[in-house]
Amino acid sequence: MTPTLGKDLLGLEPLSGEQLRLILDTAEPFKEVSERAIKKVPTLRGKTIVNLFFESSTRTRISFEFAEKRLSADTVNIAGSGSSVQKGETLVDTARNLEAMRIDMVVMRHPSSGAARFLAERIRSNVVNAGDGTHEHPTQGLLDLLTIRDRLGRIEGAKVCICGDILHSRVARSNIWGLLKLGAHVAVCGPQSLLPRGIEELGVTVFRRIEDAIAWADVLNVLRLQLERMNAGFIPSLREYYRVFGVTVERLERAPRDLVILHPGPMNRGVEIDSRVADGPHSVILHQVTNGVAVRMAVLYLLAGGRPELAEAAKSGREGGE
């Protein structure tokens, strides 16, 4: 039996390797759709999708919008700012309002970890997590997986090191779960002040020096260093960060093999990554962006089709009482 995704995509942690492969395999034909002269298929015609962004995001929102439009869905963008508290309306009220408008899907980005799950438990529409706090960013994880698979031909056995601010990174968490479930070896590298406690217990190796990570890895996924981390006292300065942890041409030249370099963007050139690396032959950063649309189309497509019976199941579960 082919696996399904269920009602929502909240993270990669709850997915099986089989479900992850289903999404990646489904993304393949969608890559081709984006290469057509008419980059649009009628698959989700008549479906309404709300892009609910409580946090500003240009590239993720645009990538989702492209994916939705190429599947012919009707989309509405709602931009909120800050947390629900600042906004005045609680998330539960937002959820009830969306439900009342009979929308089919919600793509949500929110500054609080767990917000996507909170919403998903309260509405029948499909919910796609476009990033919740420092928890998960599953579609970014999926596009990274797809890019690694494109480049290496496989994920199983690949050595992937995620570099930088792991503590505050939802991209890191989604990558860790996705890679582990598909059989990759996963490591993280960064100053310990930016590594979450107990990260080893998830099954990842910790490198304290970027040189060691480069010597070990097939793939580096270089995370964006949020500039506000410096002000919060996690690192002394951006200059020092670049000196100690920056992914530079000089460091890559000493690597025993050619590395594949990923970055979720937007990049801080000269902080976590050298411009020559970002623009160089190892970089697959633009490939990631292209794959982002395909992966999101696959997710929307799979969730849309999985909807009726799963929504029923969710409903009967909920009617069991709080």
């Binding site: 420092t134 939802r170 990260i199």
Partner: peptide, 15 residues
């Protein structure tokens, strides 16, 4: 609590 569960959930821990 700051520990592996907080790490998994992406929540800020209290050590």
């Amino acid at each position: 609590h700051e520990g592996v569960v907080a790490t998994r959930l992406g929540l800020k821990g209290i050590p």
